[in-house]
């Protein structure tokens, strides 16, 4: 069932549309307006339902080039997930450890992980760049970035 890719996507979209509609119907009413906050969302929800049904029956119009984008080697999927985790960790620790520490670690290890072998250059860039950004933002522009554990 639902072999065609478009059909699978349209089912996912349909689920999103229905969930959105359910929430739209739960919006509280506001007494003093002719067009309440729920009108437009409801319209959008039904529109998405309609469009996903259209997509279900639509002919596949992708070009060969577009289709080839989906042929990702398994190894690269692993790399993508790992980088995703790197970023997640970076964000999570950003405010706690501070901008300079997390960014330096992130740039160094992420570049290394992606295959950059010149450790000296990598280390220098990973250190200089965040420090430059940090000083520009906090000292010259008075826009604070997380200071974290460092004393400045």
């Amino acid at each position: 069932m639902f072999k065609a890719l478009n059909q699978r996507i349209s089912i996912i979209l349909l689920i999103i549309a229905v969930a959105y509609l359910v929430m739209a119907y739960q919006l509280p009413a506001y007494p003093y307006t002719p067009v309440d906050a729920d009108v437009v969302p409801k319209g959008l929800g039904y529109l998405l339902v309609f469009l996903s049904i259209c997509l279900f029956f639509a002919k596949d119009s992708e070009t060969e080039e577009q289709r080839s984008r989906r042929n990702i080697p398994l190894k690269d999927i692993g790399t993508l997930i790992a980088v995703f985790l790197f970023i997640l960790l970076y964000i999570t620790l950003l405010e706690f450890l501070g901008f300079i520490i997390t960014t330096t670690l992130f740039i160094y290890f992420c570049s290394w992980f992606l295959g950059y072998k010149k450790h000296l250059t990598n280390g220098v860039v990973a250190l200089i760049f965040p420090i430059f950004m940090y000083i520009t933002f906090t000292k010259f522009l008075q826009i604070s970035l997380p200071q974290g554990l460092l004393p400045f």
Partner: peptide
């Protein structure tokens, strides 16, 4: 590889600022 890390950092500062 280095450029990729830097673009990610750029986007993150961009949103954080």
């Amino acid at each position: 590889p280095l450029l990729i890390s830097l673009v990610i950092m750029f986007s993150i500062i961009g949103v954080y600022a």
